[in-house]
Design a protein around this nucleic acid. Structure first.
Lengths: 229, 229
DNA sequence: ACCTGAACACCGTTCAAGT
DNA sequence: ACCTGAACACCGTTCAAGT
């Protein structure tokens, strides 16, 4: 609109001035659509129609960029699932919010597990730990209990991110799980009895349900800490 | 011994022929003493007094190398803490074995969370899940329960690895935790009441004890699944 | 069969130079 | 103040050539 193309074609037209926000949003786009490996300063600069060095004026380095992108996604995820009044349900909602965010943006799982004490992680920690008083958990035990929930969430986050990296574009989940299950079934049943049994359940299990089952297990353990509900 | 130095000095003398085992052990040495970033094919080749390309004859790629290194460390960790008869204690021993291995080799935590379904992870999974029948957990629930334990262990593993990466050589743990706690205390106590309280416990808490407290919490939840013990 | 080491195709990051 | 883009110092990986 009103922009006259001069001489050489340019692949992309600058929408407006560069800003950290615009850089972060573009990075999220690349991460979501092309995967973790596709985010390079060169690719990012090309999409933003600028030089690679320009990005460094707004962002300290790649880690800073990834942290900001993670923070943006997690912040949205946590505000969406507004607070349930019931503390058990509130904790489930927060955990599921993070789970679903990582399902949609697997690279968030990678970054969440790589960079400790970042803002995104603190929000999750507060969300989980903040409900423990209402659950009747005595103060001295709250730190450990919230840590257990957080670390479980982070563990699943990392695995989901790794799985997404493995079969980049969902190459038939059932076939993939079937192949893994076949490997488990091939193990010596005397040395690996549990994996042999688990192999039968693997192909049909639902990741989200299993994730929630784990949360409920930890919540059940936490409830043994407090007085009667 | 009996080797005559000819012409130019060579920085290192080849002890014997190259092998995957020798490559993996040397990689572990570098990872342990110089950190994750120090492991490059060039550095590895220099230590082995060979060319970078030679390594590829024995190892498919860097990921293969890291997986093999992780497997070696985890296998040792799991065989050391021999099986306790009591299932709760056996699960604690396995979890603590992994925890201590990552404490000694933080890069194992990174690799464990990056590469799913690798042999090292399967051994841990079997070790944890294999004790659930003795705990009275009904078969249909065992897969979910073992997953919860595994993901918790992996979450802690990732965090410990990330922490070790952060302050490369333990620059006074208490000072570091004190700085983190100060940041938590600086947060608005109305929006972050839990983190403000947790800040007081952070500097003096023991990672290993907190890890075990989480295991016990999940075990307490798992015990609500079975019949009476 | 196994090893050598230069070369290739990338990276993140810096920085002199522009506006 | 902000942007440009070439240059630097690395990487993992390949491969022709050696033994």
């Amino acid at each position: 609109m009103g922009v006259v193309a001069t001489g050489k074609q340019r692949s992309e037209r600058r929408a407006d001035a560069l800003s950290k926000e615009r850089i972060v949003e573009t990075a999220i786009e690349i991460l979501d659509t092309e995967g973790e490996n596709a985010l390079t300063f060169r690719a990012l600069a090309a999409r933003l129609a600028t030089g690679a060095g320009a990005i460094y004026w707004h962002v300290a380095n790649k880690n800073d960029l990834l942290t900001a992108a993670t923070e943006a996604v997690v912040a949205r995820a946590l505000t969406e699932g507004d607070d349930a009044a019931e503390p058990r349900q509130a904790i489930r909602d927060i955990a599921l919010g993070v789970f679903d965010a990582i399902d949609a943006h697997p690279w968030v799982g990678t970054q969440l597990t790589r960079e400790p004490w970042q803002a995104a992680m603190l929000s999750i920690f507060e969300g989980l730990g903040g409900r423990l008083p209402a659950l009747g958990v005595p103060e001295p035990a709250q730190f450990d209990a919230a840590s257990a929930l957080l670390n479980y969430v982070l563990g699943v986050a990392g695995q989901n991110a790794a799985n997404a990296r493995e079969h980049a574009r969902a190459t038939d989940r059932r076939a993939f799980l079937g192949a893994v299950a076949a490997r488990w079934s091939a193990l010596d049943p005397r040395r690996y009895p549990f994996l042999n049994r688990a192999a039968e359940r693997l192909p049909d299990h639902d990741d989200r349900e299993q994730f929630l089952a784990g949360i409920d297990l930890i919540l059940a353990g936490i409830e043994t800490l407090g007085g009667p509900a």
